[in-house]
Amino acid sequence: MINFIDNLDFTVLALIAASLVSLMTSYIGVMVVLRRIAFVGATLAQLATAGIALSGLMEIPCNLGAVIMMLLGVGFFAQQDSRQRLPSEGLIAAAYVASGALAVIFIALAPHTDSDMLGLLFGNILAVSAKDLLFMLAVLLLITATNIFFYKEFLLTSFDPMMAQALGYNVKLWNWLFYLSLGLAIATAIHTAGVLLVFSMLVLPPLTGLSLSKKWNWVWINSTITSLLAVFGGVWLSINKDLPTSASIITISCALFLLALVWQKITTRN
């Protein structure tokens, strides 16, 4: 299987990788946007990056470092309470800048700081391996199954935590599980796609989906379709016009979101 995938053209591999990232993030991103925790997503992505840099320093597998840092972040964010003394936005910002600074320090201290490490940090979707793809596919299946199976619990604890508590749901536990699946998606996608692409895929397609429909299933379907459109368009643009892949995908994703906004304006006016 690995040999077969490895023999595929690099553009096909890049397309598959970007599609897997897009499927992983566009689905869970809807809940991220609705819970107003987009910057938690950005911070988890930054933490995963610091984890990859830490892996370089400690010479351990990069996914392991990303998962360790992501778990620390999940533990921190799942414990957040609206009644705490400090505002959560400030704490998220603090975690974001701290993880960014740590990533830079870890790279500076790493014995093999070179372009490979920078590739790992900022992602190089055109250099993805068969092993990476299979790992991403396994994580995608796990996250999708979790989000479908626990759809009701994630929805209720996000929409109305107090009602969830009244009905006997353990809101803290469900928050943990949600952040864990989010963190896992980010940590897995990050070293293929890089911080900026993962963060944008987590936010832009779900926003597009929400602009195009007011029904759960359609929001998810629209989010996934627009995310895949951006991926295919971005990879095509990158190969044919010799442009950076991630930036091309993000730009197309932004354009689709703007189009959706225009569409929303037109349809609500009528």
Binding site: L34, F159, D160, M162, L210, K215, W216, W218, V219
Partner: peptide, 12 residues
């Protein structure tokens, strides 16, 4: 709950 406490952007 009071309706003001809910996020009405949810596609519900």
């Amino acid at each position: 709950p009071q309706h003001q406490s809910l996020e009405l952007l949810f596609p519900l």
